[in-house]
Design a protein around this nucleic acid. Sequence first.
DNA 1: CCTACCGATCGGTAGG
DNA 2: CCTACCGATCGGTAGG
Lengths: 202, 202
Amino acid sequence: MKQERAVQSRLRILEAAGTLFRDKGYKATTMRDIAEAVGMQAGSIYYYFASKEEMLREVTDSGISIIDATVRQSVTGLPPDTPQLQRIRAAIRAHLHSLLQTGECPTAYARIYSQLPSSIKQRDHPMRQAYIGYWCGLIEAAQGSGEIAPELPVHTFVDFLLGSMSRAVEWHDPKAVGIDALASWIADWVLKGIVHRPAGAG
Amino acid sequence: MKQERAVQSRLRILEAAGTLFRDKGYKATTMRDIAEAVGMQAGSIYYYFASKEEMLREVTDSGISIIDATVRQSVTGLPPDTPQLQRIRAAIRAHLHSLLQTGECPTAYARIYSQLPSSIKQRDHPMRQAYIGYWCGLIEAAQGSGEIAPELPVHTFVDFLLGSMSRAVEWHDPKAVGIDALASWIADWVLKGIVHRPAGAG
DNA sequence: CCTACCGATCGGTAGG
DNA sequence: CCTACCGATCGGTAGG
């Protein structure tokens, strides 16, 4: 029916907007860019969205939601006796997958976050904090089990780790290194370090 | 004399532009924003700069140049017998200092790089590659001396490390953690890892 | 969904 | 450096 079609068009527009926001930034993307990408006239977008900012809101909401859900599911799906370090590894892999492979919204979120209007940043803040808090919980659980150094400043480390992965969208080349290999490397680097240990500890 | 004054005004404009580019992004910053920040009229800026893009070019040039020079000097200034790992530590500290403390251009560079016009990206490419190459050399030297694991994929690791530090401009809070402390932590994390080693190796 | 259009604002220029 | 202004383009609206 007609409502089905409208929902489809809405999604097509949102996908085009996410792609353009990701590639050009929010301000640099015009309603006419988005309209052209879906074969419409600029004014027609307002049949589906109240404003440009509403589109941005939906793209960022979708971005952080997908990342959060992907990571939590990947950890929840592990056997109950999985070591904490393996949970962290699964979370790293899932986070990178969501950023580099799920679609345009998570990538757009990682790329344009710093220059979002403050109204959207405020709205986004609780979800972002919840996601960071989940990661802190993962690290603290590994400290509790003795797998991670107890003196590690957890929150700063989580900021560092999440930031390092967000930046991967700028330099990762899927033709050179697969996502699973990259995730495994990054996990090795931050868990075991890169110094040479001939005895093979870690 | 008058030329002195003109040079000063040029610098003031460039500093204001860098600050605004850093905080709002390139497209979202208008010539009228910049003019207002230095107490001029919008048209007056064109007495000093041919275009908005010329200002962006000077800001990004200055940004990467400062980062590159700061890091190289910090390593060159070390005693000749300094271990390779200590050189890497010095480079991490210098890179973070240049990003978080030197001024607006390095921060602007790190923040807006991904959305630069391709003409500027192309112009910037050699300097960027040279900087990344310098880091690869530091890591390879440490592999040569046996201090870093020989199987480490150097280029990917450098992308990861530089990206992780660039992102620190988004989350670092100088009131919570000083730059030197942060640099030391990050060096510990990627060199030694965060796993708990009661024996205290590394 | 399109046509036709709006007020505002943009980067940039002419002339002083 | 300012005043005054330009053509283009922006987000958004009215009416169908």
